[in-house]
């Protein structure tokens, strides 16, 4: 279930090749508009747009659906509770509960929003390599310390994940069973403790290795982001679409 290897980042579609700065700005604008948007027509069009991006990126649809299922668990909870408790005229009666029309509309909006943004993240962020996203973040004035922190976490999650698997396998080899009892929880606590100890020790060594290579508290970078003509055309198109959904959203208020 854990795919730390950024499976979606491998590909050669135009979505993959789009400048990471354009991708970050687009998803940011889209996410903000969708998160506050109320117009169902606007939400539907945005969902269609991000679905189109996912298709254009030629991602493995089965994997995309799997991700969506996980995300929609929470949404499912909303469908269970909200329509029955939302104030407003009853749409229908299920046993003792009255399902309100407004509640159904509310839950629909949440579902559309959530899925539209998720698909957008899959299409735009998951198709970029973490190192290209970092370069873009730096360019977009995200604080340097955050960018580098991000970078160390990403780099060492892999190493520590492998370490976890080695430790866990050796526990299994010695007859450990995941059960609901104190011994099991204690073992998990030791396992997590061991991961922390090893990570702490590793961080000391990594820092020493950096010192040995002349690190004096300053990071330098070798970036070469280039903004192509194609990027410009696509970004313009995206901006037109974003303006359009803003108009749609505002239109609702006007009517």
């Amino acid at each position: 279930m854990i795919d730390l290897n950024q499976g979606f980042a491998q590909g050669s579609s135009w979505v993959h090749q789009l400048d990471p700065r354009v991708k970050i700005m687009t998803i940011f604008l889209l996410a903000v508009i969708l998160a506050v948007g109320e117009s169902i027509i606007m939400l539907l069009q945005a969902l269609a747009f991000t679905t189109y991006l996912v298709l254009a990126a030629k991602l493995e649809l089965k994997k995309v659906l799997k991700r969506l299922v996980v995300v929609n668990f929470f949404i499912l909870g909303i469908w269970v509770f909200v329509p029955a408790t939302y104030p407003g005229d009853a749409l229908m009666q299920v046993g003792p509960l009255s399902i309100s029309t407004a509640g159904v509309i509310y839950a629909t909006k949440i579902t559309l929003r959530s899925n539209a943004i998720m698909l957008g993240i899959i299409a735009l962020l998951s198709t970029s390599t973490v190192s290209s996203l970092m370069q873009a973040m730096r360019w977009l004035y995200v604080p340097e310390k955050i960018v580098y922190l991000f970078f160390f976490v990403y780099r060492y999650v892999h190493v520590i994940w492998k370490e976890f698997n080695r430790l866990y396998d050796s526990m299994l080899m010695r007859g450990f069973k995941a059960e609901t009892n104190l011994h099991c929880y204690k073992s998990y606590a030791y396992l997590i403790g061991m991961l922390l100890v090893r990570s702490y020790e590793r961080s000391t060594r990594v820092y020493e290795a950096m010192l040995c290579r002349g690190f004096r508290g300053e990071f330098h970078n070798l970036d070469d982001l280039s903004f192509s003509n194609q990027d410009l055309k696509i970004f313009s198109g995206i901006l037109v679409f974003i303006s359009w959904i803003i108009i749609l959203e505002r239109g609702v208020f006007l009517i």
Binding site: S131, M134, Y154, V206, E208, A209, C212, R216, H220, L222
Partner: peptide, 26 residues
């Protein structure tokens, strides 16, 4: 130049190029 026992301690950059350039840039 000190070559560490565990390569993962020494290589911390995303790409090979950046890892090799880390020292010279410093």
């Amino acid at each position: 130049g000190f070559l560490f026992q565990d390569s993962d301690d020494l290589l911390f950059c995303p790409t090979v190029e950046e890892d090799l350039a880390f020292g010279p840039l410093n």
